[in-house]
Amino acid sequence: MDSIDRRLLNILQQGIPLVSCPFLEIADSLGISEEEVMTRISHLKQDGIIRRLGGVFDSPAMGMKSTLCAMTVPPERIKEVAGRVNAFTEVTHNYLRDDKFNMWFTVTASSAQALETILNKIMSDTGVKVTSMPVLQRYKIKVVFDLDEE
């Protein structure tokens, strides 16, 4: 990654211009050609730096209900329980962490009722208590990483 890649990533994270030829607009601001912008994007994708180019929707604004859940899973059952939890498409993230609550996952469902149904299903499927910690207040959701910052 060179300095143009870093500037390009900053621009792409902030937002792709909503114009007919957005990559041309980005190219002009970087002083390179449209083809070069597209080639660089392809490389950043191949290298796994860009997961995808697309829309990031706001779950609450879309009417979705989500929560962070914590479980205390016996070490010997982690693989099995993770399999059962991850089987739900509504489970978007699941992390093993070094705490008394060792499995932390997020669930996003189409309604409060659907969310509750899934949590109950996870509890009955695994026999492990699920502690739900819904959001009371959002202070920040940012997924932009500034690459110029040192």
Binding site: L9, G15, L18, S20, I50, G55, V56, F57, D58, F145
Partner: peptide
């Protein structure tokens, strides 16, 4: 049409339905 797509995305962003349209990066790779 192309214009309709751009208008709809614009509206979704104004309404807050879409937070942004851009690159989703793998921060560990950065």
């Amino acid at each position: 049409t192309e214009d309709e797509v751009i208008d709809i995305i614009n509206r979704w962003q104004t309404e807050g339905l879409m937070r942004r349209l851009g690159a989703v990066v793998r921060h560990n790779r950065l």
